[in-house]
Structure formats: C-alpha cells, structure tokens
C-alpha cells in the first residue's frame, strides 16, 4: 500500500506558476532590450558593453545564493530540520552554476577588451581569482557532502563547513581585492559603480537584468528543492 503523501506543498502552486511565467517573459524582454537597444559606443569596449547586462547580474545572483545557502545552514544548526539542509545544498548548487557562468562571461569579455591583441585568457585580476576561489570553496563543500553517508551527520558537518567558509568570504570579496591593483571598476575604493562607469541609458536594463536573474535563481532553486524533496519521499515510499 502506498502511504499518501503527508507533506503539503509549501507554497501556493498557482502563484508559483505565475511567478515562473512572469520571469520567463521578463527575461525575454531583458535579453531583447540588451541586444537591441542603442548604447553609447566607446573605443575598445564597443558592443561588448552589452555583456554588462549578463556578466554583472551573475555576481549579484551568486552572492544572493551564497547568502541563502549560509542562512539555511545556520537555520539547520538551530532547528535540525532536514528541509533546511536540502535548501542550503540546492542554493549552493544553483549559485555555483551562476558563478561558473559569471566567470565564463568575464573571461570572454576580458579577452576581447582588456587583453585585446595580447591573446591572454586568464590574468591575475584579483576579482577573477577570488571568484575562482569561491567556486573552489563550493567544490570542497560538495566533496565534503559526498564523503559522508549518514544523512544527519552529513547535514550537520556540511552546515558547519558552509558557515565557516561564509565567515572567511568577506576577505575574498572586500579586503583582498582592495589591496591589489585591478582593472575592474571600483578598485579605487567603493565596489559600487560610480556615475561615470555606467551610461544612464544602460541603467534601467541593467537593474531589470539584476532583478530578473535573481528571480530566475529563486525559481530554479525552489524547483530543485521540490524535486529533491520528492526524490527523498520516493526513496522512503516507492510507488
């Protein structure tokens, strides 16, 4: 006999589908505008400036994922609720993919602007290197998870490692990049864009892209959490 599912869906599915459809439409609009709208043409940068709409939101999204993962790890340690562990893991996984995409868009962008004519793909730019370290940290987190079989112990140890790593991350994002020369905007002090870094015409699309990618992250992440929970349930009560 199959036990009926006792877990209620955590959210209103109709509203969820609406958000999912809305983010699809929104991102289509962002991508369309990003490629088609006129932008000021600067030397060297030319049309590669459009990469701003994709490259930079990846970092915002990855930072959001890092915060979500750390939050759920902390809640796991406080409550011992297994759902928190699933949430932390899936946030880290989706954030990892966004980080990877960010680094790829960054490499290609740098190759054809900063290092044009030199043929360099990778250079010791502090932000680039620090983000590679972020990816290494999450790689270590996944490796740690796969090395423990017992679920409660795995959840607890992984949560501790995630929080410990999150405690050292401000050094990677804020302290070290300011001690080294960088070609990124914001290397002179504040990491935010100054008035001259971003043309007014690009701002609305840029902000729309940030919102769109973060909501897209939320949709993929919650979707994966639901899948993981269903898989767990199927393992316990096979159909």
């Amino acid at each position: 006999m199959n036990a009926p599912s006792t877990r209620k869906p955590a959210i209103d599915l109709r509203r969820y589908r609406f958000v999912r459809a809305a983010v699809g439409v929104w991102m289509t609009g962002v991508i369309g505008f990003a490629f088609l709208r006129d932008i000021p043409s600067l030397e060297i940068l030319e049309h590669t400036a459009r990469n701003l709409y994709f490259h930079v939101p990846m970092w915002f999204t990855m930072m959001a994922a890092v915060i979500v993962a750390a939050y759920h790890s902390a809640r796991y340690l406080a409550t011992d609720d297994p759902v928190r562990d699933v949430r932390a893991e899936q946030a880290a996984r989706v954030g990892f993919v966004f980080g990877l995409l960010g680094i790829l868009t960054g490499i290609v962008w740098a190759r054809f602007t900063w290092y044009v004519g030199q043929g360099i793909w990778w250079n010791f730019d502090p932000r680039q290197t620090m983000v590679a370290v972020f990816l290494l940290i999450y790689g270590a987190y996944f490796t740690l998870r796969s090395s423990i079989d017992e679920p409660t112990r795995r959840a607890r140890v992984a949560a501790v490692y995630n929080l410990f790593a999150a405690a050292t991350m401000p050094f990677l994002t804020y302290v070290v990049p300011r001690q080294m020369p960088s070609l990124h905007p914001g290397a002179e002090g504040s990491p935010a864009f100054s008035e001259t870094d971003l043309a007014p015409v690009m701002r609305p699309i840029f902000y729309a892209a940030i919102i769109g990618f973060i909501v897209l992250f939320w949709v993929i992440y919650t979707q994966r959490v639901r899948t993981a929970l269903l898989e767990e349930e199927l393992e316990e009560n096979p159909l």
Partner: peptide, 10 residues
C-alpha cells in the same frame, strides 16, 4: 587539504 586550501587564500 581540499577543505582547507580555498579558505586559506586570503
């Protein structure tokens, strides 16, 4: 080493 080295970069 896998867990430690990324954290020790700073």
């Amino acid at each position: 080493p896998v867990l430690l080295f990324p954290l020790l970069v700073p």
